[in-house]
Design a protein around this nucleic acid. Structure first.
Lengths: 239, 239
DNA sequence: TCAAAAGTGTTCTCCTTACACCCATGA
DNA sequence: TCATGGGTGTAAGGAGAACACTTTTGA
């Protein structure tokens, strides 16, 4: 069958089309605190209200391309960890029109984004613990994203996506404590992380948060990829 | 703001709409073998080819309602375990038109479905291990669904959704062996499952697969729900 | 009586958890 | 010199994994 012929024709004509959007839950980790990037909606209805960053999906792009497009537009960042969260499709969810949204969550290194761009778009960071009310069902999306972040972080070392490329073990621990809302024993945490042999020690200290300074590490992505293919199972704690 | 006024107006008019479909990966467990319900596509293009069961999402229904609708139409079953898998939205994925599909996977008790209905729709069960080629990207959907089923079954006791309401421990073990493509030690398996205290022993034996007969159990859904809320963690094995 | 599946206990190892003090440094 | 955060070791308990034989019963 000729693909080109096919794609120029609409075989499904009697069916109804819907608006398809994507919304991004963008996580950042700033000084021990988990934050979300929120901005002001610039379309009616609810123009000017706080909202997640989103966009309609264009006919010539996949849903995740649309999400990457807006993320790039607003933060200037490329090659971000991003994953599909869930589809929100209740009939009455958007009074602006019948519209489904496929939410995605993204993890970014908060020190790397383009501050001027973000400001220009009227976006700003809010602590996850102190979020204002957002439009539509965006509050639910965030709740779901937080849960998913926990589930994911438990068995996949995605925390590193939120930290600077060079990080200290105390930083890493604070991140996991922020994600899981739970404190870890420093000895056990360090022991566990180092036993995975996925941290590359650097001969360098970060003295920004103590006089003694803490050694910096890099995450060994390559080694992790290899282990993952063999069915390696990262797991931070048991229960 | 008046919701009714809003919903009668289309605020997003300059944006393009897309066809939105949903496809269901329907798992069943039959006599030690994991199977999928596949049927013949009844719309052009590719009419008559093997396909997952799906439907366009109508303007007046949510995506999962659409999935439940087709599942009910074809199997006669209600109240099925069903969960969103992933959105498939590559621009060229469907030569019939620009169309995204939100795939869902469902687990059904294979002895409960309506055989006449299924036959009438030209649907049939295929072993997961011996699947034919399906249309579009449905093969990818199935691969993803199998992976998700494993991930999910590892930490959530969803296996019970695939078994008769009364089942034996050897049956349960065979199910998990089919899902994980891996054999378990019978002593350890039994010990583990019973230690969870989520199986209600019945004073009844199933003699269909042995002369001695195996005791039947029921899964304690209520107790599980309670434990789950408290953060209980079902986990079948470690690595 | 025998074939076929169900059912049962113990040991070893390793991972998790709990727990408290010294170290390095800049102010 | 002292306050602050970084870094370290050990012991006890529990869970997972390995492993082989007896029981029941219909044919």
């Amino acid at each position: 069958m000729d693909k080109n012929t096919l794609s120029n024709k609409d075989w499904y004509a009697p069916e109804k089309k819907l608006y398809v959007a994507t919304d991004c839950i963008i996580f950042g980790f700033d000084n021990g605190i988990l934050k979300l990037l929120v901005f002001q909606r610039h379309v009616e209805p609810f123009k000017g209200m706080l909202s997640l960053i989103g966009s309609f999906v264009k006919p010539n792009e996949a849903v995740n391309d649309a999400a990457r497009r807006v993320l790039k537009d607003i933060t200037g960042l490329d090659n971000i960890f991003m994953e599909e969260l869930k589809t929100y499709s209740e009939v009455e969810r958007d009074p602006g029109a019948r519209c489904i949204s496929i939410a995605q969550y993204a993890l970014i290194r908060i020190e790397e984004y383009d501050k001027a761009l973000v400001e220009e778009h009227g976006a700003s960071w809010y602590e996850v613990e102190k979020l204002p009310k957002l439009v539509l069902d965006h509050d639910v999306m965030i709740k779901d994203a937080l849960y998913k972040l926990q589930e994911k972080a438990r068995f996949h070392p995605i925390g590193f996506e939120l930290l600077p490329k060079k990080f200290t073990i105390p930083q890493l621990q604070k991140l996991y404590e922020a994600i899981f809302q739970k404190v870890f024993d420093t000895r056990n945490f360090r022991k566990k992380l180092l036993s995975l042999k996925l941290l590359i020690p650097l001969n360098e200290k970060d003295k920004s948060s103590s006089k003694k300074g803490a050694f910096l590490y890099k995450f060994d992505y390559k080694k992790y990829k290899r282990l993952e293919e063999k069915g390696f199972n990262f797991s931070l704690f048991k229960n």
